[in-house]
Design a protein around this nucleic acid. Structure first.
Lengths: 199, 199
DNA sequence: GTCTATATCCAGATAGAC
DNA sequence: GTCTATCTGGATATAGAC
C-alpha cells in the first residue's frame, strides 16, 4: 500500500516527518543545555521556523514535552525489541538491564525526562504514562521469569539499574566507569534475592 | 567569647543569620517547584525583601546556587558526623549508605543539585567542589576499611546508593519502597566485591 | 541594608494575514 | 503551513537614592 492509495495519507506522513524533525531538534537542545532549559523558541530556531509556527505541530510546550516523553519510550522499546531471546532467566534480566543503562547513558536528557521527573511542572499525560508502563512491562516479565515478583525485590533491581545510569551520566559523562558495573550489580542483587544471606 | 568582644562580629553574625534565612527559603522554593525552577525573585519574596536586595547577600544567582551546594554538603557532613563509630567494616558502610539515602530522600532538591547536576548552567565553584570531596571522603574511608578501593568497585557501591535514592525520590516520594532496600543492596554488592562469584 | 527605577532579555500564548 | 504582530509576564542585573 502506497501513500497515494489513502486520501490524506501523504499529508499525514508529511506532518509526521515534520514532527520527527522537531522532536530530534528538541532532543538535541536538551542534550546541549539540559532538560529543564528546553525552550520551544530554540527548538523552532533549530528547525528553521518561528516559535509561533511550532504551535501548528505542538500547540503548547506541555504537548511537546509529552511527545518527547512518549518518543523516548518508543525508542527504548525498540532497544528492547532487538534483544536476543531469553535463554537463562538471569541473563535475560542482565541483558535488559545493560540495554537500559546503555540507552540512558547514550541519551541523558531522555533519562532525566523519562525517569527522573526533572522538568519543572511537567507531568506526562495518561496516554504517555501508559506507554511507559507497557515498555517497562518487558522488564517485569523478565524479572518474573527469574522469580522476582515481590515489590521490594523489584525496587532493589530498579534501584541498581537507575543508579548506575544516573551516576554514569552525572559523574563520568565521557567514560564507562559506572555503566560497566551494570552486570555485576544486577547479578549481585539477583543472587541476594534468590538466596538471601542469613543475618 | 561574646560577639561584643570582637569588632564587626555582631554584624557578621547578623549577616550570617540573614544568609541562613535566605538559604532555607531557597531550599523550600526548590522543594516546591524543582531545582531548575529556582528564581531569586521568589526567594526574595519568601524572606520579605525585593529581588534587588538579595544581591547584597548573594550578588548573582550563581553565587546563591553555589552557597546552596556548599550548604547541602555541610548538612550531609553533619549527618555523617553523628553516625555511631564503626565496629564491623561492612556495617560501617551500610550505616553511611543509609544515612546518605535518608538525607537524599528527605531533601530531594539537595540530591538533584548536589549529585545530579540537574540545574541548567550551574557548575560549583572550585571551593564548593572541594568541600564536596571532603565530605565524600568519609564514604571512601569506610569503603577502604571494608577492603573496597578499586575504582570499579567504588563505582558499583556508589551506583547502588545513588540509584536507591533517585528511584525513591522520583517514583515513590511519599513512601519508603526503594529507600528500605539500601541495606540489602549494599550488602549484596559488598559480598560480590569481597568474594566474586565465578563465572 | 533596603529601596526605587530601570535596562535587557527571554519565555510562551494568541490573533489573524497570506 | 508559515508568517507578522503583539500580549503578558518572568527572569537577572545594575545604578544610585535614602
Amino acid at each position: 500500500m502506497t501513500d497515494s492509495e489513502v486520501p490524506g495519507t501523504r499529508i499525514a506522513t508529511r506532518r509526521a516527518r515534520a514532527q520527527r524533525e522537531i522532536l530530534d531538534a528538541a532532543w538535541a537542545v536538551m542534550a546541549r543545555e539540559g532538560v529543564a532549559a528546553l525552550s520551544v523558541r530554540e527548538v523552532a530556531r533549530s528547525v528553521g521556523i518561528r516559535q509561533q509556527s511550532l504551535t501548528y505541530y505542538y500547540p503548547t510546550k506541555q504537548a511537546l514535552l509529552d511527545a518527547l516523553f512518549a518518543d523516548g519510550f518508543a525508542d527504548l522499546r525498540r532497544r528492547f525489541d532487538v534483544l536476543p531471546a531469553v535463554t537463562d532467566p538471569v541473563a535475560g534480566v542482565v541483558d535488559l538491564a545493560i540495554a537500559f543503562v546503555d540507552h540512558c547513558v547514550a541519551r541523558p536528557a531522555a533519562y532525566h525526562l523519562m525517569f527522573q521527573g526533572t522538568v519543572p511542572g511537567f507531568e506526562p499525560s495518561e496516554e504517555s504514562h501508559s506507554i511507559a508502563l507497557t515498555v517497562l512491562g518487558e522488564l517485569l516479565d523478565r524479572l518474573a521469569a527469574a522469580g522476582v515478583t515481590e515489590p521490594a525485590d523489584l525496587a532493589l533491581v530498579r534501584g541498581v539499574m537507575s543508579g548506575v545510569a544516573a551516576e554514569q551520566i552525572a559523574n563520568d559523562p565521557a567514560g564507562r566507569l559506572f555503566a560497566d558495573q551494570t552486570e555485576r550489580g544486577i547479578r549481585a542483587v539477583l543472587a541476594e534475592i534468590q538466596s538471601p544471606s542469613s543475618r
